[in-house]
C-alpha cells in the first residue's frame, strides 16, 4: 500500500496531479473519517425518517382530529422550509436552549452537538416527505382489502401493521427510493453547522492544499458511489418484495 501512496506522490511531483488527500496520511485519515461520518449520518437519517414516515402515515389515518392536524402541521412546516434553514434553526436557535452539561474544562456546553442536530433536522425533513409517500401507498390499497381485514377482526393497528403497510410499502418503494437518495445528498448541508462530514473535510483540504479540481472529482465520485449503493440496494429490495400480479 505504501508504495502506491509513493506512486501518487510521484504523480503529483511529475505531472502536477495533486492527490494529496490520498497519499498524505493526515489528509487521508481525516477524509476517511469524514466519509465515515457521512455514512453514519446517512444510515441514521434513513432509519429515523422511515420510522417517522410509517408512524406519521398511521397517525394521519387516526380518528382524532387533533392528531391529524398535528401531523399535517408537521408536514407543512418541514416540507415547506429549506433544509439548510432548518438546520441553522435547530443548531443556533433551539440548540442553546437545551440543558447544558459542564465539561471537564469548566464550560457549560449545550447537550446536543452539531452531529446530533444535523441528524434530527435531516430526519424530520425527510420524514415529512416519507409520511406523504407512505400515505400515497396506503391510499392505493384497495378499500375491499381493508374491509376484509376489518371483517376478520383485525384491530386498526393490526390491520395497518399486517395488511395495509406491507401492500403500501410495495406500491411506494420507487417514490421512497427517490426521497432517500435526496436525503443522502442533503447530508452535505451539515457542512454549514460544522459537522465534519465529507464535504466539510474536503473543503478544508482543498483550501489548505489548493487541489480544488482533484478534490471536487474525488467528492463527486464518492457521492456517485454512495448513492449508487443505496439505489442498487433499493432495487434489490423492490425485486425481493415483488408479489406476482400485484402492482405491475
Amino acid at each position: 500500500m505504501d508504495s502506491f501512496w509513493e506512486f501518487l506522490r510521484h504523480v503529483h511531483d511529475a505531472y502536477g496531479i495533486n492527490l494529496v488527500h490520498f497519499y498524505d496520511s493526515f489528509e487521508r485519515g481525516r477524509l476517511l473519517k469524514g466519509m465515515l461520518t457521512t455514512l453514519q449520518l446517512s444510515v441514521l437519517c434513513i432509519g429515523l425518517s422511515i420510522l417517522i414516515g410509517i408512524f406519521g402515515a398511521w397517525l394521519q389515518g387516526s380518528r382524532f382530529r387533533v392528531l391529524k392536524t398535528l401531523v399535517q402541521a408537521y408536514i407543512q412546516f418541514f416540507r415547506n422550509t429549506p433544509p439548510l434553514v432548518q438546520m441553522f434553526f435547530f443548531y443556533f436557535a433551539l440548540g442553546p436552549l437545551m440543558p447544558r452539561v459542564v465539561n471537564d474544562y469548566g464550560i457549560a456546553q449545550p447537550m446536543l452537538g452539531s452531529f446530533a442536530w444535523a441528524m434530527i433536522s435531516l430526519s424530520f425533513f425527510a420524514g415529512a416527505f416519507n409520511i406523504e409517500i407512505f400515505r400515497s401507498g396506503i391510499d392505493a390499497v384497495q378499500s375491499a382489502t381493508v374491509e376484509a381485514a376489518d371483517a376478520l377482526g383485525f384491530s386498526r393497528w393490526q390491520a395497518y401493521r399486517y395488511v395495509i403497510l406491507p401492500l403500501a410499502v410495495r406500491i411506494c418503494l420507487p417514490a421512497l427510493n427517490n426521497n432517500l437518495v435526496n436525503l443522502v445528498k442533503t447530508t452535505t448541508q451539515a457542512y454549514a453547522i460544522a459537522v465534519p462530514e465529507t464535504l466539510f473535510v474536503a473543503s478544508q483540504i482543498w483550501s489548505d492544499r489548493i487541489n480544488v479540481l482533484e478534490m471536487m472529482i474525488t467528492l463527486l465520485l464518492f457521492y456517485l458511489f454512495l448513492v449508487g449503493i443505496l439505489v442498487w440496494g433499493m432495487i434489490r429490495l423492490e425485486r425481493a418484495l415483488a408479489i406476482p400480479g400485484f402492482g405491475r
Binding site: G95, I107, A108, S114
Partner: peptide
C-alpha cells in the same frame, strides 16, 4: 458571526 455564536453558546473553548 456563526463562529462567534458557537463560542458564546459554549460549543468550543
Amino acid at each position: 458571526a456563526e463562529a462567534q455564536q458557537a463560542l458564546l453558546d459554549g460549543r468550543c473553548v
